[in-house]
Design a binder for these strands. Sequence first.
RNA 1: CGGGGCGUAGCGUAGUGGCUAGCGCGCCUGCUUUGGGAGCAGGAGAUCGCGAGUUCGAAUCUCGCCGCCCCGACCA
Length: 576
Amino acid sequence: MLRMSTLLLRTLRDDPADAEVASHKLLVRAGYVRRIAAGIYSWLPLGYITFRNIERVVREEMDAAGFQEVHFPALLPRDPYERTNRWEEYGGSLFRLKDRRGNDMLLGPTHEEMFTLMIKGEFASYKDLPISIYQIQTKYRDEARPRSGIIRGREFVMKDSYSFDIDDEGLAASYEKHRQAYISLFDRLGLKYNIVSAVSGAMGGSRSEEFLAPCETGEDTYVLCPQCGYAANVEAMITKVPAYAGETPPAMQVFDSPNTPTIDSLVELLNKNHGGGFKGSDTLKNVLLMADGKAISILVPGDREVDLKRVEANLPGVEELRLFEDEDFKKFPGLVKGYVGPQDAKKLGITVYADPRIVKGSHWITGANVREKHVMYVTHGRDFEVDGFIEAAEVRAGDQCPECATPVVIDRAIEIGHIFQLGRKYAEALDLTVLDKDGKARVVTMGSYGVGVSRAVAAIAEQSHDEIGLIWPREVAPADVHIVATGKDDLPFDTAEKLAHDLEALGLRVMLDDRRDASPGVKFKDAELIGNPFIVIVGKALAEGKVELRDRKSGDKNEIALDGAPAAINKVVTAH
RNA sequence: CGGGGCGUAGCGUAGUGGCUAGCGCGCCUGCUUUGGGAGCAGGAGAUCGCGAGUUCGAAUCUCGCCGCCCCGACCA
């Protein structure tokens, strides 16, 4: 039983000055967490109980799926991370340190290497596969900018699991098992979420989905179709465009366009000198990028910006991607800043990628590769060719859903889980093979799967609170029932004490406000702030032999007879 | 890493060169109070982030450092 009279807890009346988002403010005010350093928090009793409840749900669902729990150190040697090149690749986000002998060590940001080596150390046969193992571990990432309280910390707890299979079909099955386990665990945690297609990106796998918990303060942006439920990370959003059905345009026509280095200035000139009705979307924007030292041009409709994150996600293998700088223009004298067109790309030695909207046969107004001149009727397939299509343009609310063509909405969310078909990258780097039926060595294929356990505390708080405090789903709340005793004599306190014991005997978890010196108002405010799903008030109504039961979320209040109260309360609570 | 802001008691804050650094919450003591963050009286608690400098005098001005928050870049 949690007794308010002795709990290590001091609720705060004011929002902390360094908190911006609701979860951060409330978790601090209600006495769940305290900041130690940027992105590093300690858990007070209430916070740690809640945290462990979430951890327990995660563990139970992992175990139910048949995955085996293991545990690695957070403090790790450099060597395994050297072999996968991540000692370097991880950059500034890796906490590096040296032991007394000068050996390089690190605090694990994620544990692919260690898991791979664990399987390699124990197993060597296809008969041992498939297997999935997991841990619940503290991770360390020296984020450039920790933010939003415990949503994005430098130290956080993650459940990470890894599947090992002999072939792609096995991987697909392991992936699906994890997907199902995640669905049941997030459902149990009472989180609202969308499963969103993601881009596997630099990790080099194939299929990947994120579990995103929608909330305004989330830092991930994703696309959602209100009609068919299609959901995708902005990087993974697919553009579907019908084939060009218009007439074949006349031959290219160059025109003078002084002082029109931007799309806006070009459209203005067109409408002034060439009749009205021109829009930014009639023009073709050529955005020049340097990709690992190679010049590429991205073609998008003039009214769209290029989204570098999307480009990067869709250009696998490229390590450094940046916009053209003046230095780069010097190296390509044929490119005239502000007047670039794709017609002469071959001649200029530039690779051209087009947004899917630049369909074959469509014609555009674009730069003439000559200062102060543009061209119209520049036609894809006739006047220029592209080296490939790429998802490059920014995604906007109202863009068409690739599944059903309904206008999509754009929403924000917190990433609470990520499942990922890793493939053979780590197995190859660390030489994880097993012998197959024919006695031949085969590289194992892996999946990796993460749940942010500490982050889930904040995600639930974000999704489940009101102006006056937190509102926990029962399974994660510090207690099922928060009993408040009010009054000046012993009766309400003795009654509350007995009720607490009776409820515990029925299997409920109880928090009891047995403070004799606090006023009723303080106790009510604290109970509401702390956010247990049910509040029982033992006070005034005792005169009629009743106690009051409140539903924290709905605010519903009911008086119930003290006689038989434990059973009645138990019934309401367990039906929740 | 670029831009902006902030650092005064456990928390929230006032104080732009001049007396013993002020107030609210919280904390301690006593009395009263007990269904919506009680009242009165008394009290404890602050090297004003750290270090240098300017000055008769610095929380206040200058320089350096450290820390924290926000926007962006980054984020298996």
